[in-house]
């Protein structure tokens, strides 16, 4: 029940309405896919904190509409506190992701074969005081990750929303203990004014002695600035902007001349991140044509 929401009607808001997505956030997942190919070979996926269900919509569309896919293989489960409108082929679990029962229900769904992809676009009730918001978002992410460890297959992918605030580097280094590759990405459709970004964790490889538990799920964050200033944050994941293939950005005022975006036009081609180095060869200035 917030007072106002500014810039509500940006281009992605309009596009989402036009194309029938339940929320504009659907584009964020699509853009993340363009960058990282997170749906490649995935048939079993979980959407945590799913309501109103735009990410579930994307999962359903991407996983069930492949010409090669066998629909009986595809399994998509959505978890949220609230029930949402049904989608074809989507199994819904209504429950709190920090609760044992929810975890059990989810494990039951993936008892035969574990999920290859877990996504979470959940966010707390943002107060506007960024330090509290960031803390609660981090707790939510850890809760989501904790339930994920129960159902995610090795080499699986985990995508979740993070707030890039003061302690974000610490959170990422924790996730790096579990995943071979951790990236932060900000999709084009995410407003550049927001501190929101997405962490894309690929190649899940839990420690051999790690046992998933719901009893003390929350990793403890402690924070030391000295550690950061010595450059430790440099080893954390590189930043990648995703969604380059879309000719829009969320800040831009939309014009009608560019009015023909078809989602399927997003090819699998990916943009490469720029090389990360300190002294780099000077790029040549190009003369625009």
């Amino acid at each position: 029940m917030r007072k106002t929401s500014k810039d509500k009607r940006d281009i992605y808001y309009r596009l989402a309405k036009e194309e029938g997505w339940r929320a504009r956030s659907a584009f964020k997942l699509l853009h993340l896919d363009q960058q990282f190919g997170i749906f490649k070979g995935v048939t079993r996926a979980v959407d945590l904190c799913a309501a109103p269900g735009s990410w579930s919509q994307v999962l359903v569309k991407k996983l069930r509409s492949r010409p090669t896919s066998d629909l009986s293989e595809v399994k998509i489960v959505a978890v949220d506190l609230q029930a949402m409108a049904p989608l074809p082929g989507l199994i819904q679990i209504v429950g709190d992701i920090t609760k044992e029962e929810t975890a059990q229900a989810l494990i039951k769904e993936f008892k035969d074969s574990a999920a290859q992809l877990v996504v979470c676009d959940g966010a707390p009730d943002v107060t506007g005081l960024h330090d509290i918001d960031e803390f609660i978002q981090a707790q939510l992410l850890l809760a989501a990750f904790n339930i994920t460890t129960h159902v995610l297959a090795p080499a699986g992918t985990f995508v979740a929303k993070v707030f890039r605030g003061k302690d974000v580097s610490l959170l990422l280094s924790q996730l790096q203990l579990f995943f071979g590759c951790v990236n932060i990405a900000k999709p084009r459709s995410s407003r550049s004014t927001s501190i929101e970004a997405f962490v894309v964790c690929q190649n899940y490889k839990p420690l051999p002695d790690y046992k998933p538990t719901m009893h003390n799920p929350l990793l403890n964050l402690s924070y030391d600035d000295k550690w950061i200033s010595e450059g430790a944050n440099k080893f954390v994941s590189p930043f990648l902007a995703s969604g380059d293939l879309q000719p829009f950005d969320s800040l831009r005022s939309c014009t009608t001349e560019q009015h023909s975006p078809v989602l399927d036009a997003c090819t699998e081609e990916r943009s490469r991140p720029l090389p990360k180095s300190s002294a780099c060869p000077a790029p040549s200035l190009t003369v625009p044509t």
Binding site: R164, G165, K166, V168, S169, I195, A197, I228, N233, K234, V236, P238, F239, L274, K276, S277, S278, A279, C280, P281, A282, P283
Partner: peptide, 10 residues
């Protein structure tokens, strides 16, 4: 050109 791709955390 000189660049630091991880100058800050955000």
């Amino acid at each position: 050109q000189w660049r630091d791709d991880c100058a800050h955390a955000s």
